[in-house]
Protein backbone atom coordinates (compact mmCIF):
# COMPACT_ATOMS: atom_id res chain seq x y z
CA UNK A 1 0.00 0.00 0.00
CA UNK A 2 1.33 3.40 -0.93
CA UNK A 3 0.59 6.93 0.11
CA UNK A 4 1.11 8.74 -3.18
CA UNK A 5 -1.61 11.31 -3.87
CA UNK A 6 -2.82 10.87 -7.42
CA UNK A 7 -2.19 13.68 -9.83
CA UNK A 8 -5.26 15.83 -10.26
CA UNK A 9 -6.94 14.63 -7.11
CA UNK A 10 -6.17 17.71 -5.10
CA UNK A 11 -8.67 20.41 -4.27
CA UNK A 12 -7.87 22.69 -7.13
CA UNK A 13 -9.68 25.84 -6.22
CA UNK A 14 -12.58 27.65 -7.75
CA UNK A 15 -11.78 28.37 -11.38
CA UNK A 16 -12.05 25.59 -13.96
CA UNK A 17 -9.05 23.29 -14.06
CA UNK A 18 -7.86 20.72 -16.56
CA UNK A 19 -9.66 17.42 -16.22
CA UNK A 20 -7.38 14.45 -15.71
CA UNK A 21 -9.89 11.60 -15.89
CA UNK A 22 -9.33 11.16 -19.63
CA UNK A 23 -5.76 11.37 -20.88
CA UNK A 24 -3.96 10.40 -24.09
CA UNK A 25 -5.39 6.89 -23.86
CA UNK A 26 -8.92 8.24 -24.14
CA UNK A 27 -7.83 10.66 -26.85
CA UNK A 28 -6.45 7.63 -28.65
CA UNK A 29 -9.94 6.28 -29.03
CA UNK A 30 -11.10 9.43 -30.78
CA UNK A 31 -7.96 9.49 -32.93
CA UNK A 32 -8.10 5.85 -33.99
CA UNK A 33 -11.88 5.65 -34.17
CA UNK A 34 -12.22 8.91 -36.09
CA UNK A 35 -9.47 8.20 -38.61
CA UNK A 36 -10.44 4.57 -38.99
CA UNK A 37 -14.11 5.19 -39.58
CA UNK A 38 -13.33 8.17 -41.81
CA UNK A 39 -11.17 5.92 -43.97
CA UNK A 40 -13.83 3.22 -44.01
CA UNK A 41 -16.54 5.68 -45.01
CA UNK A 42 -14.49 7.12 -47.89
CA UNK A 43 -13.41 3.67 -49.03
CA UNK A 44 -16.93 2.32 -48.81
CA UNK A 45 -18.39 5.20 -50.79
CA UNK A 46 -15.60 4.73 -53.32
CA UNK A 47 -16.80 1.18 -53.81
CA UNK A 48 -19.84 2.56 -55.61
CA UNK A 49 -17.40 3.94 -58.19
CA UNK A 50 -15.51 0.71 -58.58
CA UNK A 51 -12.85 1.26 -55.89
CA UNK A 52 -11.93 -1.73 -53.81
CA UNK A 53 -8.93 -1.92 -51.54
CA UNK A 54 -8.48 -4.64 -48.96
CA UNK A 55 -5.56 -2.65 -47.59
CA UNK A 56 -7.65 0.45 -46.93
CA UNK A 57 -10.40 -1.55 -45.26
CA UNK A 58 -7.89 -3.41 -43.16
CA UNK A 59 -6.12 -0.24 -42.06
CA UNK A 60 -9.48 1.33 -41.18
CA UNK A 61 -10.47 -1.60 -39.01
CA UNK A 62 -7.06 -1.71 -37.35
CA UNK A 63 -7.24 1.99 -36.50
CA UNK A 64 -10.68 1.59 -34.92
CA UNK A 65 -9.43 -1.45 -33.03
CA UNK A 66 -6.36 0.38 -31.78
CA UNK A 67 -8.59 3.19 -30.57
CA UNK A 68 -10.73 0.78 -28.60
CA UNK A 69 -7.65 -0.91 -27.19
CA UNK A 70 -6.29 2.48 -26.20
CA UNK A 71 -9.37 3.36 -24.17
CA UNK A 72 -9.39 -0.15 -22.71
CA UNK A 73 -6.04 0.74 -21.14
CA UNK A 74 -7.69 3.69 -19.39
CA UNK A 75 -10.44 1.93 -17.49
CA UNK A 76 -9.96 1.12 -13.83
CA UNK A 77 -11.48 -2.35 -13.89
CA UNK A 78 -10.51 -3.87 -17.26
CA UNK A 79 -11.78 -7.34 -16.37
CA UNK A 80 -15.29 -5.90 -16.28
CA UNK A 81 -14.95 -4.28 -19.68
CA UNK A 82 -17.93 -6.14 -21.11
CA UNK A 83 -20.18 -4.27 -18.67
CA UNK A 84 -19.88 -1.42 -21.15
CA UNK A 85 -22.67 -3.13 -23.07
CA UNK A 86 -25.24 -2.62 -20.30
CA UNK A 87 -26.05 1.06 -20.77
CA UNK A 88 -27.56 1.18 -24.24
CA UNK A 89 -30.67 2.96 -23.02
CA UNK A 90 -28.79 6.21 -22.44
CA UNK A 91 -25.04 6.01 -22.99
CA UNK A 92 -23.36 6.81 -26.30
CA UNK A 93 -20.36 4.86 -25.13
CA UNK A 94 -22.46 1.71 -25.03
CA UNK A 95 -23.94 2.51 -28.42
CA UNK A 96 -20.43 2.93 -29.80
CA UNK A 97 -19.66 -0.59 -28.55
CA UNK A 98 -22.86 -1.93 -30.15
CA UNK A 99 -21.91 -0.39 -33.49
CA UNK A 100 -18.39 -1.81 -33.19
CA UNK A 101 -19.98 -5.24 -32.90
CA UNK A 102 -21.47 -4.68 -36.36
CA UNK A 103 -18.57 -2.82 -37.92
CA UNK A 104 -15.86 -5.41 -37.29
CA UNK A 105 -17.69 -8.50 -38.60
CA UNK A 106 -18.95 -6.58 -41.64
CA UNK A 107 -15.55 -5.07 -42.33
CA UNK A 108 -13.85 -8.44 -41.99
CA UNK A 109 -16.41 -10.02 -44.30
CA UNK A 110 -15.77 -7.26 -46.84
CA UNK A 111 -12.15 -8.34 -46.98
CA UNK A 112 -13.41 -11.61 -48.45
CA UNK A 113 -16.55 -10.46 -50.29
CA UNK A 114 -15.81 -7.15 -52.10
CA UNK A 115 -19.49 -6.36 -52.67
CA UNK A 116 -19.93 -5.90 -48.94
CA UNK A 117 -17.56 -2.92 -49.03
CA UNK A 118 -20.51 -0.84 -50.21
CA UNK A 119 -22.21 -1.40 -46.84
CA UNK A 120 -19.37 -0.49 -44.48
CA UNK A 121 -20.07 3.23 -44.55
CA UNK A 122 -23.28 2.70 -42.57
CA UNK A 123 -21.77 1.32 -39.32
CA UNK A 124 -18.63 3.40 -39.83
CA UNK A 125 -20.65 6.62 -39.94
CA UNK A 126 -22.73 5.47 -36.98
CA UNK A 127 -19.55 4.78 -35.01
CA UNK A 128 -18.15 8.21 -35.82
CA UNK A 129 -21.44 9.80 -34.80
CA UNK A 130 -21.36 7.92 -31.49
CA UNK A 131 -17.88 9.28 -30.81
CA UNK A 132 -19.08 12.82 -31.41
CA UNK A 133 -22.04 12.29 -29.10
CA UNK A 134 -19.78 10.84 -26.39
CA UNK A 135 -17.99 14.16 -26.20
CA UNK A 136 -21.14 16.24 -26.50
CA UNK A 137 -22.75 14.41 -23.56
CA UNK A 138 -19.87 15.38 -21.27
CA UNK A 139 -21.62 18.28 -19.60
CA UNK A 140 -18.75 18.85 -17.21
CA UNK A 141 -16.36 20.01 -19.94
CA UNK A 142 -17.58 23.16 -21.73
CA UNK A 143 -15.41 22.67 -24.83
CA UNK A 144 -16.83 19.17 -25.30
CA UNK A 145 -20.49 19.81 -24.67
CA UNK A 146 -20.74 22.42 -27.44
CA UNK A 147 -23.19 21.33 -30.14
CA UNK A 148 -20.46 22.22 -32.63
CA UNK A 149 -18.38 19.30 -31.38
CA UNK A 150 -20.67 17.09 -33.47
CA UNK A 151 -19.84 18.52 -36.91
CA UNK A 152 -16.24 19.05 -35.83
CA UNK A 153 -15.68 15.39 -34.99
CA UNK A 154 -17.54 14.27 -38.10
CA UNK A 155 -15.70 16.54 -40.52
CA UNK A 156 -12.28 15.90 -39.06
CA UNK A 157 -12.93 12.15 -39.19
CA UNK A 158 -13.74 12.42 -42.89
CA UNK A 159 -10.74 14.67 -43.55
CA UNK A 160 -8.45 12.23 -41.74
CA UNK A 161 -9.97 9.30 -43.62
CA UNK A 162 -9.54 10.98 -47.00
CA UNK A 163 -6.02 11.92 -46.01
CA UNK A 164 -5.09 8.38 -45.06
CA UNK A 165 -6.55 7.11 -48.33
CA UNK A 166 -4.15 9.42 -50.19
CA UNK A 167 -1.27 8.19 -48.05
CA UNK A 168 -2.18 4.57 -48.76
CA UNK A 169 -2.79 5.12 -52.47
CA UNK A 170 0.66 4.04 -53.71
CA UNK A 171 0.26 0.75 -51.81
CA UNK A 172 -3.46 0.20 -51.88
CA UNK A 173 -4.39 0.69 -55.52
CA UNK A 174 -3.27 -0.75 -58.82
CA UNK A 175 -2.36 2.72 -59.99
CA UNK A 176 -0.01 4.62 -57.70
CA UNK A 177 -2.05 7.75 -58.26
CA UNK A 178 -5.25 7.77 -56.25
CA UNK A 179 -8.53 8.40 -58.02
CA UNK A 180 -9.27 12.06 -58.66
CA UNK A 181 -12.28 12.06 -56.41
CA UNK A 182 -10.10 11.15 -53.40
CA UNK A 183 -8.27 14.46 -53.58
CA UNK A 184 -11.56 16.26 -54.13
CA UNK A 185 -13.01 14.49 -51.09
CA UNK A 186 -10.06 15.68 -49.02
CA UNK A 187 -10.49 19.28 -50.18
CA UNK A 188 -14.21 19.18 -49.39
CA UNK A 189 -13.65 17.63 -45.95
CA UNK A 190 -10.91 20.14 -45.13
CA UNK A 191 -13.12 23.04 -46.19
CA UNK A 192 -15.91 21.77 -43.97
CA UNK A 193 -13.53 21.11 -41.06
CA UNK A 194 -11.91 24.53 -41.14
CA UNK A 195 -15.29 26.23 -41.37
CA UNK A 196 -16.61 24.33 -38.36
CA UNK A 197 -13.36 24.86 -36.48
CA UNK A 198 -13.44 28.63 -36.99
CA UNK A 199 -17.05 28.80 -35.82
CA UNK A 200 -16.34 26.53 -32.84
CA UNK A 201 -13.25 28.45 -31.81
CA UNK A 202 -15.05 31.79 -32.10
CA UNK A 203 -17.88 30.61 -29.87
CA UNK A 204 -15.54 29.15 -27.28
CA UNK A 205 -13.54 32.38 -27.14
CA UNK A 206 -16.74 34.43 -26.99
CA UNK A 207 -17.59 32.98 -23.60
CA UNK A 208 -18.82 29.42 -24.04
CA UNK A 209 -15.58 28.03 -22.60
CA UNK A 210 -13.48 28.96 -19.56
CA UNK A 211 -10.79 31.54 -20.25
CA UNK A 212 -7.98 29.01 -19.89
CA UNK A 213 -9.56 26.53 -22.33
CA UNK A 214 -10.23 29.29 -24.84
CA UNK A 215 -6.58 30.35 -24.62
CA UNK A 216 -5.48 26.79 -25.47
CA UNK A 217 -7.75 26.78 -28.51
CA UNK A 218 -6.49 30.17 -29.66
CA UNK A 219 -2.86 29.04 -29.36
CA UNK A 220 -3.64 25.87 -31.31
CA UNK A 221 -5.62 27.59 -34.02
CA UNK A 222 -2.83 29.03 -36.19
CA UNK A 223 -0.67 25.89 -36.49
CA UNK A 224 -3.78 23.77 -37.02
CA UNK A 225 -5.24 26.07 -39.67
CA UNK A 226 -1.97 26.36 -41.52
CA UNK A 227 -0.41 22.92 -41.07
CA UNK A 228 -3.51 20.78 -40.96
CA UNK A 229 -5.69 22.53 -43.49
CA UNK A 230 -4.10 25.15 -45.73
CA UNK A 231 -0.87 23.30 -46.48
CA UNK A 232 -2.69 20.11 -47.51
CA UNK A 233 -4.88 22.11 -49.87
CA UNK A 234 -1.81 23.80 -51.37
CA UNK A 235 -0.20 20.39 -51.83
CA UNK A 236 -3.26 19.01 -53.58
CA UNK A 237 -3.28 22.01 -55.90
CA UNK A 238 0.44 21.51 -56.51
CA UNK A 239 -0.17 17.87 -57.38
CA UNK A 240 -2.73 18.95 -59.95
CA UNK A 241 -0.36 21.49 -61.48
CA UNK A 242 2.71 19.27 -61.57
CA UNK A 243 1.88 15.61 -62.29
CA UNK A 244 5.47 14.48 -61.72
CA UNK A 245 5.18 15.18 -58.01
CA UNK A 246 1.53 14.16 -57.73
CA UNK A 247 2.03 10.89 -55.84
CA UNK A 248 4.33 12.40 -53.24
CA UNK A 249 2.40 15.65 -52.93
CA UNK A 250 -0.94 13.91 -52.44
CA UNK A 251 0.53 11.57 -49.86
CA UNK A 252 2.07 14.51 -48.02
CA UNK A 253 -1.25 16.38 -48.18
CA UNK A 254 -3.03 13.36 -46.74
CA UNK A 255 -0.48 12.97 -44.00
CA UNK A 256 -0.75 16.62 -43.00
CA UNK A 257 -4.56 16.47 -42.96
CA UNK A 258 -4.47 13.33 -40.82
CA UNK A 259 -1.89 14.73 -38.42
CA UNK A 260 -3.88 17.94 -38.08
CA UNK A 261 -6.96 15.98 -37.10
CA UNK A 262 -5.07 13.91 -34.59
CA UNK A 263 -3.59 17.01 -32.97
CA UNK A 264 -7.02 18.62 -32.94
CA UNK A 265 -8.48 15.75 -30.93
CA UNK A 266 -5.50 15.43 -28.60
CA UNK A 267 -5.76 19.16 -27.92
CA UNK A 268 -9.50 19.16 -27.27
CA UNK A 269 -9.49 15.99 -25.13
CA UNK A 270 -6.34 16.55 -23.08
CA UNK A 271 -5.44 20.25 -23.19
CA UNK A 272 -8.51 22.41 -23.77
CA UNK A 273 -10.51 20.29 -21.36
CA UNK A 274 -10.98 22.57 -18.37
CA UNK A 275 -14.00 21.66 -16.32
CA UNK A 276 -16.93 23.87 -15.32
CA UNK A 277 -15.45 25.16 -12.08
CA UNK A 278 -17.67 26.65 -9.39
CA UNK A 279 -19.92 29.69 -9.33
CA UNK A 280 -22.48 31.42 -7.16
CA UNK A 281 -25.26 33.70 -8.31
CA UNK A 282 -25.34 35.84 -5.17
CA UNK A 283 -23.23 36.60 -2.15
CA UNK A 284 -25.24 36.24 1.04
CA UNK A 285 -26.35 38.88 3.43
CA UNK A 286 -24.46 38.43 6.70
CA UNK A 287 -25.67 39.94 9.93
CA UNK A 288 -27.03 43.40 9.18
CA UNK A 289 -25.26 43.51 5.83
CA UNK A 290 -26.70 43.46 2.37
CA UNK A 291 -26.41 40.65 -0.16
CA UNK A 292 -23.91 41.12 -2.96
CA UNK A 293 -23.15 39.95 -6.48
CA UNK A 294 -22.18 36.45 -7.47
CA UNK A 295 -18.95 35.23 -8.98
CA UNK A 296 -17.89 32.79 -11.67
CA UNK A 297 -14.11 32.48 -11.46
CA UNK A 298 -12.18 31.60 -14.60
CA UNK A 299 -14.83 32.72 -17.08
CA UNK A 300 -14.98 35.83 -19.24
CA UNK A 301 -18.12 36.98 -17.49
CA UNK A 302 -16.85 36.30 -14.00
CA UNK A 303 -19.62 38.30 -12.35
CA UNK A 304 -22.05 35.43 -13.08
CA UNK A 305 -24.95 37.81 -13.55
Amino acid sequence: MTNEPEVGMRHLGLAPWLQTAWDLRAAGNFVGGGSGTGLLIITSLGAFGGLYSRGAILVGLVLVGLGLFSVFLEIGRPLRAMNVLLGGKRSWMTREAFVAAVLFPLGTAALVYPDLAKLIWVPALAYLYCQARILEASKGIPTWRSPLILPLILTTGLAEGAGILLVLAPMAFDSATPPDWAASALIAALAARIFVWMTYRRRMVAGEAPVEAAAVLVAFSAPFTLGGNIIPVVMVIGAGLEPSIAVAALAAAGLAAMAGGWMLKVTIVTKAAQNQGFAIKHSPARGAGEPGPGIKPGWTDSSNT
Partner: peptide, 20 residues
Protein backbone atom coordinates in the same frame (compact mmCIF):
# COMPACT_ATOMS: atom_id res chain seq x y z
CA UNK B 1 -20.62 -3.00 -11.92
CA UNK B 2 -18.62 0.18 -12.56
CA UNK B 3 -15.64 -0.31 -14.88
CA UNK B 4 -13.93 2.95 -13.96
CA UNK B 5 -14.06 4.46 -17.45
CA UNK B 6 -14.18 7.96 -15.97
CA UNK B 7 -16.95 9.11 -18.30
CA UNK B 8 -19.13 10.19 -15.36
CA UNK B 9 -16.26 12.26 -14.00
CA UNK B 10 -16.08 14.39 -17.14
CA UNK B 11 -19.86 14.51 -17.38
CA UNK B 12 -20.34 16.01 -13.91
CA UNK B 13 -20.31 19.83 -14.00
CA UNK B 14 -19.82 19.92 -10.22
CA UNK B 15 -16.48 18.08 -10.14
CA UNK B 16 -18.03 15.79 -7.57
CA UNK B 17 -16.66 12.45 -8.73
CA UNK B 18 -13.33 10.79 -8.11
CA UNK B 19 -11.44 7.70 -9.11
CA UNK B 20 -8.66 6.21 -7.03
Amino acid sequence: ICIGCGYCIVACPYQARYKV
